[in-house]
């Protein structure tokens, strides 16, 4: 074959394969698969393999033999449970690099909502987790919980806190997720309580804060957390 014919043939073969792939019967991605798609930038690449393991499907986790990793995770989680939670409100404006796009598929959660002192947040979590009427409706070991902090007082010591399951099918008290541009303050991952607290330092307190949202995703006992802030 001469050169032009070779190039043409290459294009033809490519075209045929491409057409086949455009019309392939791909299974639609599950919520889980959609959620796992991070918007990458070079700065986050080094974390990519790690995150892949953390967010990959269970088979992948099994294949990559991450049992040790899971055990480690459980240990840190039980350690966190005993740490007292304090929310610092130092007004250091830190520009958070929007490395992750938090994807929200629909806009309500099912759970409880109360105006509380932020120091007593643990009590509200306990109250929420004790609601067997809600947790009993969970159909899979994969689920997502959102905690929404809004209507802050000027010292950021009080807020309305809503905690709920992100589940379209669940019945119960529905609470709207706040809408607006999400600025990440904590990227998806396993985080210690202190890391979650210091994430709040990234909030630009000079700007009116509409809400701070904490997202917790579960695959069985594995928990991954991310947070973002929405400004007015």
């Amino acid at each position: 074959m001469n050169f032009p014919m070779s190039v043409l043939t290459t294009c033809l073969i490519t075209g045929v394969i491409w057409l086949g792939l455009v019309f392939q019967k791909a299974n639609p991605p599950t919520d889980f698969e959609k959620y796992s798609t991070l918007e990458m930038d070079p700065a986050t690449l080094s974390d990519a393999a790690y995150s892949m393991a953390a967010y990959g499907r269970e088979e992948t986790i099994k294949f990559f033999n991450l049992d040790n990793y899971k055990k480690q995770l459980q240990l840190t989680q039980s350690a966190q449970a005993s740490e007292p939670k304090q929310i610092e409100t130092a007004s250091k404006p830190v520009v958070a690099k929007p490395a992750i796009k938090a994807v929200v598929e629909s806009n309500t959660i099912v759970g409880i909502s109360k105006s509380i002192q932020l120091a007593s947040i643990d009590g509200l979590w306990k109250e929420f987790l004790d609601q067997k009427a809600l947790s009993g409706q969970l159909k899979s070991e994969r689920f997502t919980i959102f905690a929404i902090y809004s209507d802050f007082n000027s010292q950021f010591s009080r807020a309305r806190v809503s905690i709920g399951y992100f589940d379209k099918a669940m019945k119960g008290n529905r609470i709207d997720l706040p809408q607006g541009k999400q600025v990440p303050i904590l990227k998806k991952g396993q985080h210690s309580m202190s890391a979650m607290v210091s994430a709040w330092d990234k909030i630009d307190y000079q700007r009116p804060v509409k809400a701070v949202v904490e997202r917790r995703d579960y695959i069985g006992e594995q928990e991954t957390i991310s947070s973002f802030v929405i400004y007015q």
């Binding site: 392939q24 791909a26 599950t30 698969e33 393999a49 995150s51 892949m52 967010y55 499907r57 990559f64």
Partner: peptide
């Protein structure tokens, strides 16, 4: 074969291989 993979899984496979 038709299962949707996440981009990170693809990246993970590359690192692994």
């Amino acid at each position: 074969l038709n299962q949707t993979l996440t981009d990170l899984e693809v990246y993970g496979w590359e690192e692994f291989i």
